[in-house]
Amino acid sequence: MKPINKFSMTLDSRSANEGFARLVASGFAALLDPTVEELCDIKTAVSEAVTNCIVHAYPNGVGNIYISAAIYENGLFKIKIRDRGCGIEDVKKAMEPLYSSLGGERAGLGFAVMESFCDKLSVRSTPGKGTSVTLDKYIKGKALAD
């Protein structure tokens, strides 16, 4: 399946960029004429993925976050958020709801939220090399929501 449109960008893993990243992602997804709820789902899931890069992948400094997204004729919005950070030793454990390696103010819900707010979530990680998170969301859009 060929995308009808795509974009990619690289940004610094600075927390100020969390808002920017979800704004760009939702702006791009807006081309599929989504409902307010669908846009909110995308913003939330992207925010979680980007926060993970900032908090976990590059805990001691600033690294690159690579974001690429595409939209397809069938309403699929696909976004990949990748880093070259520390990677995840145990992806299964990291994805458990309420588990956080950091504790404290982190709820440990990042992956659970991504999973619940999107149609598909896939996580690939190599310790020492980085992590790649792909989110799929089918936009039914305003036309079908009525």
Binding site: T44, E48, G104, E105, R106, A107, G108, G110, A112
Partner: peptide, 13 residues
């Protein structure tokens, strides 16, 4: 107007 799981962390804390 927007909240992700950081809001949950905020409430828990």
């Amino acid at each position: 107007t927007f909240m992700d799981s950081s809001g949950v962390g905020l409430v828990m804390g």
